[in-house]
Design a protein around this nucleic acid. Structure first.
Length: 444
RNA sequence: GCCCCCAUGGUGUAACGGUUAGCACGCGAGCCUUUCACGCUCGAGGCAGGAGUUCGAUUCUCCUUGGGGGUACCA
């Protein structure tokens, strides 16, 4: 088996594209001896810049979807395309015509919509493939079953421009054929391209690959997923602090479900269980909330050491182990760590509302008492801090939060943070007391 | 306009034609609790509509409605 992922390099790897890549990859990795081929499919030189191509590769690498061959660019194959073109011309399977899109429209207006455009060989102009008048072109789609297009509804497709440069529908077919691709898995926006490509195979007397057309991904409004739905590319997801393994897990489930309806599935299990034939036919909506939940689950299941490594790579900071350890179950994406625990390293954040609510004149008494108790502690461990502050609560008949919240705001600057005892212990006695003193000295 | 496709709660999905239609996210309530989370318990919410086939349709067929894709000398 040889499967390929052939994105058009428009700059970013769309989530739908990422899912297509993942499904291809899962098929290849789940089949012994299979090869996963990467090819850049774009006949437009403007768009196919090295930067754009590199962005796609970068996103795939980040998702940890490795490939066995490629990437091959279509432009490297111009000679081969020209060769196939002249063969088709010589065989009478294609012809040159100056007919334009307007001519096609006029032709249909004249002959009715149930008659596809058929041109005459004029010896110049663009090259069109001859479509038979009768019959149909059909294939057995791995996902949607038998799919057929009547030839009478098909116009003779242009396969090369007048200048000789090839068009997508011709190029993919030739490239897939030469690469020995056995399975083509792509979005259903390619369905109507399939008969054209099949006709190229047919004209060449070649055996076509199997096709599987995935339903498209929609945004929360039911429309095609795009920029205005927030994160729509894997680059954006990465920047938002999602983990590649969580993304793989989540997007695998967008249109496909494991036999036992499992929600949390490791990549190894995915490889073992994934079955392209079980993919849903209807479009799925991308739901970032569920991704976030799943991401949090993956974050919580990591060892503190692993998670620290991820957080440090994401934030570009080091020495975060203690902060990560005490806040592991409180953040769901890597990006959420710093707003939550950054105060441990860069000083208290500034939340005026929190200060106003918890550091008023009447709360300072509790804070002052806490300061004395903390200063008197032999060991500044979370355990000892816990013990002495709870003792303060009991003795002073204060509510727990009247003791803990002012302290939290004093050291963190915000009303939300990891546990106070743990946070104090991470900060250490000196830093903690200093922050408390500043809070006590602040204006009411 | 024409061609093609799709249809289980808000979302993703499960269910040999026979189930009180299951699971997960989200949502609501409660428990836990120093904040926020996590965790646990409970709850609300669905087979788009109509015919037909059948002893029996979420499941098969047709129609309607709704949604999507394509319709380039783009990919």
């Amino acid at each position: 088996m040889r499967v390929r992922f052939a994105p058009s390099p428009t700059g970013a790897l769309h989530i739908g594209g990422a899912r297509t890549a993942l499904y291809n990859w899962l098929m290849a990795r789940g089949t012994p001896g299979a090869t996963f081929v990467l090819r850049i499919e774009d006949t437009d030189r403007e768009r196919s810049t090295p930067e754009n191509v590199e962005q796609i590769l970068d996103a795939l690498r980040w998702l940890e979807l490795d490939w066995d061959e490629g990437p091959v660019s279509q432009f490297e194959r111009a000679d081969r395309h020209a060769e196939v073109l002249s063969k088709l011309l010589a065989d009478g399977r294609a012809y040159r015509t100056t007919a334009t899109a307007d001519d096609v429209k006029a032709y249909k207006a004249e002959h009715g919509s149930d008659r596809g455009f058929r041109g005459q060989d004029e010896g110049e102009g663009a090259i069109r493939l001859r479509v038979p008048d009768e019959g149909e072109t059909a294939w057995d789609d791995l996902i949607r079953g038998r799919t057929a297009f009547q030839h009478v509804h098909l116009d003779d497709p242009v396969i090369a421009r007048a200048d000789g440069s090839v068009l997508y529908n011709f190029a993919v077919a030739v490239d897939d054929l030469d690469a020995g691709i056995t399975d083509v898995v792509r979005g259903e926006d390619h369905i109507s391209n399939t008969p054209k490509q099949l006709l190229v195979y047919e004209a060449l007397g070649a055996e076509p690959p199997r096709f599987a057309h995935l339903p498209l991904l929609h945004g929360p409004d039911g429309k095609k997923l795009s920029k205005r739905h927030g994160a729509a590319s894997v680059q954006e997801l990465r920047d938002a602090g999602y983990l590649p393994e969580a993304i793989r897990n989540y997007i695998a489930l967008l249109g496909w479900g494991a036999a036992d309806d499992q929600t949390v599935i490791s990549t190894d299990e995915l490889i073992a269980q994934f079955d392209i034939a079980k993919v849903q036919k209807n479009p799925a909506q991308f739901d970032e909330k569920k991704l976030r939940w799943l991401n949090g689950l993956y974050i919580r299941s990591m060892t503190p050491a692993e998670l620290t490594e991820r957080v440090e790579a994401f934030t570009g900071r080091s020495g975060l182990a203690e902060g990560v350890t005490i806040s592991q179950e409180k953040f769901a994406t890597l990006a959420e760590f710093w707003p939550l625990a950054g105060f441990l390293y860069d000083g208290p954040t500034d939340d005026p509302a929190a200060r106003e609510k918890w550091l008023g004149a009447d709360q300072r008494a509790n804070l002052a008492t806490s300061r004395e108790r903390l200063a008197a502690l032999d060991s500044f461990s979370a355990e000892h801090i816990d013990a002495t502050l709870r003792e303060q609560v009991e003795r002073g008949d204060a509510k727990p939060k009247d003791v803990f919240q002012p302290l939290r705001v004093a050291i963190a600057g915000a009303a939300v943070s990891p546990g106070v005892f743990e946070s104090l212990a991470v900060l250490g006695r000196e830093e903690s007391l200093q922050r408390i003193d500043i809070a006590l000295a602040g204006s009411p």
